[in-house]
Computed example of a mutant assay.
Amino acid sequence: MRSYQYRAHSERHRTERIGWLRAAVLGANDGIISTASLVAGVAAANASHANIMTTAVAGLVAGAMSMAAGEFVSVYSQADTEKADLERERQELAADGEAEHRELTAIYVHRGLEPELANHVATQLMAHDALGAHARDELGISEALSARPLQAAMASALSFAVGAAMPLAVVALAPAHSLLVWTVVSAACLLALLGTIAALVGGTPIVKSALRVTFWGTLAMVVTAGVGALFGAVV
């Protein structure tokens, strides 16, 4: 009889990065757009260089803290929902395992397995890890995609600070008379770079990602600068 040796599958997929990647891209994108837009708005309103620098620094600190708090709260809510669903599933398995077995079998039949094979697969998976099988195939909860509040909060805060530091550096180094142009152009370039990096990490089309991020970020800066110029005040 032929014997088989099974080894753990070591291939890594991009979905494993989705938790921190989403938070990091969102944070960096917001950091660049928010800070650059603030700078564009106050620069268009003819504010002093000191006021522009103060606004940029305040925007960096406030934005990073806001991103961290917002991500933590929202992702923690998702984690609480997942825990509640898993607890209810655990109770249902304890109360009526046969019904849960039939439910899992029906899921596999719906996905294309023959009823007999679906029943066999459900039996084996539930014998190995009943709650894990239902979490994955009934609830759609997996280890790679599960909510991680602290990870999301830290990634968002750090990436926002890094993104916001770029326009802040422009304010410190660019000539005062052309600060608005330097801010918008440099931020647009940074957004294009961010879109490219996100596409490479996530395995998505580079040009489409870069254009999307750059377009909406530049639009935000132009609108904010327009408001600043219109009202002649710090926005």
Rank of each mutant, 00 (worst) to 15 (best):
G97E: 15
V181P: 00
H128A: 12
G27Y: 02
T224H: 05
Q78E: 14
R7S: 11
L139H: 04
G97A: 14
H13S: 11
I197Y: 00
A161R: 01
M67K: 09
P115I: 07
A118S: 08
F72C: 01
I206H: 05
T196V: 14
W216H: 03
G132W: 05
R102T: 07
A69G: 10
L168H: 03
L158P: 00
I32L: 15
F215P: 01
A172I: 08
A176H: 14
L104R: 08
G70Y: 08
I52M: 09
M221R: 04
E71A: 11
A94D: 14
A172L: 14
A118K: 04
A130T: 05
A229E: 11
R12N: 09
A43Q: 03
N119C: 12
A225E: 06
S77Q: 11
H9A: 12
A130K: 05
S178N: 12
C189N: 01
L125F: 10
A225I: 07
R136G: 00
A199Q: 09
V42D: 02
V184K: 01
G217Y: 08
A229D: 10
L230F: 15
V61A: 13
A43N: 04
K83N: 14
E103R: 15
A62Y: 07
H120V: 10
G31Q: 10
A44I: 06
Q78A: 13
I32S: 05
L230W: 15
D85Y: 07
M65W: 12
M154G: 06
N46H: 14
R102D: 15
E143I: 11
S77Y: 03
A95Y: 06
F231T: 12
H13R: 13
M126K: 11
A43R: 03
V61G: 04
A50H: 11
A62I: 10
D129N: 15
A47S: 12
M67Y: 09
A130P: 02
T105L: 01
V222T: 12
E92C: 02
H101C: 03
G63D: 04
A152T: 10
L104A: 07
Q124R: 12
P149W: 04
I141Q: 07
A28K: 04
A192R: 06
G217W: 08
A164V: 09
S146N: 10
S37A: 15
G228M: 05
G70N: 08
V181W: 13
E143N: 09
V121R: 01
A99W: 00
S48E: 11
A36N: 03
N51C: 00
A192S: 14
M67T: 08
A220K: 03
G228E: 06
R14P: 02
P115T: 08
E71H: 06
H110C: 01
E138W: 00
L230G: 02
I141V: 11
A161P: 04
T105E: 14
T15H: 15
S186W: 09
A95E: 12
A220V: 10
A147H: 05
L113P: 04
L219I: 14
A84Y: 09
A133N: 03
A99P: 01
D80H: 10
S186M: 14
E114R: 11
M221N: 04
